[in-house]
Every structure is written in structure tokens, then in C-alpha cells.
């Protein structure tokens, strides 16, 4: 069973991001959307946690949400950008979607 984890809350405001990392197993996919895209930036208080996740999981970020927030630069190496079609593809490639609201 493969799981796509989605997170839509800022890692600085809610603990959804930390909880997701606690539950996501090696080999699973994590997609940052809406306010969670702030986690994709380099040099933040959570960037070490994101880098640790990338070691054994795939971390994606939704590009339109990054663009909206003006932060489509200085992203953590290894975080993969996807568009809406990529989001759909991820949902079809995985067996289930776990939304960390």
C-alpha cells in the first residue's frame, strides 16, 4: 500500500507538518499544498526536517501555490515541483491519500 500524504497548513502555525512526518513511512510521497508550501523553502526552522524526510520519502510541492505566495526561489534541493496535472498523477499512482488538515 502506497500513501500520498498531503499537507495544507503552514508548518509554523499548525503541527500538521510534524505529525505527517511522524506517520509517513519510507517510500511514501508527501505533497505540500496551500500554506504548507512555506516548508519547501531553504533556511527555515523546518528545513532540516524536510531534508531528513527527503532521504527516504518523495517530497513534492504544488507550484501554483508557491507562485501565489511569491516564494518560488531558494527551495530545498530535492523537493520536486508539480503542477495540478502532477497532483492528479500522484493521487492515481498511490493507493490512498491521507490529508493532514
Amino acid at each position: 500500500m502506497s500513501i500520498l500524504h498531503t499537507i495544507n497548513k503552514s508548518p509554523f502555525e499548525k503541527d500538521s507538518f510534524q505529525t505527517c512526518l511522524r506517520y509517513a513511512k519510507a517510500g511514501s510521497s508527501i505533497l505540500l499544498i496551500e500554506d504548507a508550501v512555506y516548508a519547501a523553502r531553504e533556511g527555515t526552522d523546518v528545513s532540516d526536517a524536510v531534508k531528513a524526510a527527503i532521504q527516504d520519502k518523495s517530497v513534492f510541492v504544488l507550484l501554483p501555490d508557491l507562485d501565489a505566495r511569491g516564494l518560488n526561489s531558494n527551495l530545498i534541493n530535492g523537493v520536486q515541483s508539480v503542477d495540478y496535472a502532477g497532483f492528479v498523477k500522484l493521487t492515481t499512482e498511490n493507493d490512498t491519500v491521507q490529508s493532514w488538515l
Binding site: L63, P64, D65, D67, A68, R69, G70, L71, N72, D83, Y84
Partner: peptide, 9 residues
Amino acid sequence: TKGQNTTDI
């Protein structure tokens, strides 16, 4: 932040 572009959302 500068450079906000909401076209696609």
C-alpha cells in the same frame, strides 16, 4: 513577500 502571482490559483 514580493513577486506574488496568483494567476494559477
